[in-house]
Design a protein around this nucleic acid. Structure first.
Lengths: 152, 152
DNA sequence: TCATATAGTATGGAACTCATAAGATATGAG
DNA sequence: CTCATATCTTATGAGTTCCATACTATATGA
């Protein structure tokens, strides 16, 4: 029982560590592409959640709409994204990541991907499934916490 | 074999997701304390790696030394840290997190801690150990990757 | 038709980051 | 011991970024 609690705390501490390390990795990757941390975060969200409008992106990234205009200007000028104005609502704009530069980012994350592959070889299929599920559930838990406290 | 590869990719994707969510959580917590993301990151590193000199902290946080001066000025003014000048080398300064405000941060992370506890109840002791080890090894892998590419 | 709401962006002021340089102290060669 | 050099931290100034507000254009509903 005591062991259980201790392991739980170790998991949380490890998670905190991992977050810092991944943030540093992103910072480094961003540096090589002349991108701010926030800019890379936005690209990341865009790559995952598909094309988005500026307002939706601002909400998901926790940024002020006006701040996002600046970020999008930078990203557009550097050829990372395109602003499409083809929707039914002519006020609205959808942001799309241009595909070729997406590869460029992918390449810079390769070393980390390789390192993760090394870690993963030591686990059985069942264990990998367990880990994947745990990570997904943790991300969801975090998202729920965020949503709950954003209401107030 | 194909399933194995797919699960591996899912793990990496989930890790990316988790990073974003945790970054948002930090952003939100930082907002309630009137702290920039970078400032909170520095506090986090300090809380984990113990008292540090500005140079060491700048290295660990991937920041320019001069940038760190500004950050430390803010943190000191707001009562988060103290600059101690008691070392043998009188050029050097050690940064220390003041204990009382540390509690304040802890409280803001409580909801997330609770959510994690909920997730963890579903796992056996052996599974928790497995997860803890995986997370530690991933963080170490990330750290190694960072170290390697920082040399160039 | 007109009032109101919404999407995105321009504007200006305050704050931030970083390269350079300066001040203070340590270290090592002669 | 002295002096040149290296190291640690911080001041300075230029350029950039963030955000609150206000504005334009479009949509929606009475």
């Amino acid at each position: 029982m005591r062991h259980r609690r201790r392991t739980g705390n170790e998991i949380k501490a490890a998670l905190r560590d991992l977050r810092i390390q991944l943030a540093l990795l992103n910072h480094q990757v961003g540096g090589r592409l002349a991108l701010k941390d926030v800019d890379l975060d936005c690209l990341d969200v865009l790559a995952r959640s598909g094309p988005l409008t500026p307002s939706a992106l601002a909400r998901q990234a926790g940024l002020h709409p006006a701040t996002l205009t600046g970020i999008l200007d930078r990203l557009e000028r550097a050829g990372w994204i395109a602003r499409d104005r083809t929707g039914a609502d002519r006020r609205s704009v959808t942001i799309r990541v241009l595909p070729d530069r997406g590869m460029e980012v992918f390449r810079l994350y390769q070393p980390m991907m390789g390192a993760m592959d090394d870690v993963l070889t030591d686990y059985t299929d069942t264990e990998l499934d367990l880990i994947a599920t745990f990570l997904r559930r943790s991300a969801e838990a975090c998202e729920r916490v965020l949503g709950r406290s954003a209401q107030e």
